[in-house]
Simulated assay, not measured.
Amino acid sequence: MAARYDHPGEQAAADPIRLLAIRDTPLSLDEVHAAVQDAAAGGTAFFVGTVRNHDGGQDVDALGYSSHPTAQAELRRVAEKVVADHPVRALAAVHRVGELAVGDAAVIVAVSCPHRAEAFEACRKLIDDLKHEVPIWKHQQFSDGTEEWVGAC
């Protein structure tokens, strides 16, 4: 009898990076979901980061994201590392730049893998590394008139 992981569907796909983008238009969960659908995936994990109306005990009135010109290449590097370390069937990551409103999606990532535990782990790694390594910065304006850059070096 063949081992559980001998089937090709139990392995990473040959080209699992299906969608990577940094854009100034609204993000679509449907677009990301379509990008990571894979018949061999038994688990698909998503993370959607949204703009909230507060941060650090202050009310947020406005928020904008900006990115460095290398951000797209860094996003690809992060995605390739996740793919190298996990049996990813499909991966997608999109991040918004520009002015966003409370409730808007700022980032959506998704990963499909043969099993749910792998999908959860790979998705967590993808969003954590994206937030720490891709040069995208958040500018928050608070209701008391103060402002703050988050993630800027």
Rank of each mutant, 00 (worst) to 15 (best):
I108S: 03
A110M: 06
Y65H: 13
A117W: 11
F46P: 00
H68A: 13
H95I: 09
I22N: 02
G151S: 04
D38Y: 06
D59M: 07
L27E: 12
L20Y: 03
R76A: 14
Q141K: 12
R18F: 00
L29F: 14
D30Q: 15
D38H: 15
A62Q: 15
C113Y: 06
L29T: 14
A39H: 12
G64L: 13
D144V: 03
W137H: 03
H86L: 10
G98V: 09
D38K: 05
A93H: 10
K81T: 15
A105V: 09
K125T: 15
A62Y: 08
R116P: 00
A41C: 11
I127G: 01
T50M: 10
V51R: 07
G49T: 06
L126I: 08
I127P: 00
V32Y: 04
A13N: 05
A105M: 12
M1N: 10
A93E: 12
A2Y: 14
A84I: 04
A92P: 00
G145S: 06
P114S: 07
Q140L: 13
Y5I: 09
L63W: 01
W137R: 06
Q58Y: 07
H54G: 01
T25I: 13
L63R: 02
D104G: 01
K138Q: 13
C113N: 07
K131M: 10
K81V: 15
Q72E: 15
I108W: 02
V36D: 09
H95Y: 07
A13I: 04
L27S: 10
Q11L: 13
A117V: 13
R76P: 00
V48L: 14
V97I: 15
D104V: 07
A35P: 00
F46I: 04
I136H: 03
R124K: 14
